[in-house]
């Protein structure tokens, strides 16, 4: 399985992924990124502050960025009752 590096860029700066994860393809890497963002945002929601301005940069082993996943891709935000 190829190795993908999921770097985080948001209001608190840049967190490089030093290890990477073995995932079947880019689509699996995107799913891992979405899961990760949801986990980060759920913690932020507990503190009452959501930073949707960040993104996950998915890079391959050569360091090339293959995809950028904005935090906003991870959630559907509804502001008014249906």
């Amino acid at each position: 399985m190829p190795r993908f590096y999921l770097h985080i860029r948001n209001g608190s700066g840049y967190a490089e992924d030093p290890e990477g994860q073995d995932l079947s393809d880019l689509s699996a890497a995107r799913s891992a990124a979405i899961d990760g963002v949801r986990s980060l945002l759920s913690e932020e929601a507990r503190h009452g502050e959501l930073d949707l301005g960040g993104s996950i940069e998915i890079a391959n082993e050569d360091g090339n960025i293959l995809l950028i996943v904005p935090f906003s891709d991870a959630i559907n935000l509804r502001r008014s009752p249906r």
Binding site: I8, S12, A15, E19, A32, D35, S39, L40, I56
Partner: peptide, 23 residues
């Protein structure tokens, strides 16, 4: 341990662990 191992101990994702370790 890898960040994934740590994530599996503390019920988070590897991304969340990475960001929290940075913090």
């Amino acid at each position: 341990l890898t960040q994934t191992d740590l994530a599996e101990c503390v019920g988070l994702t590897s991304i969340h662990v990475n960001r929290t370790l940075k913090e």
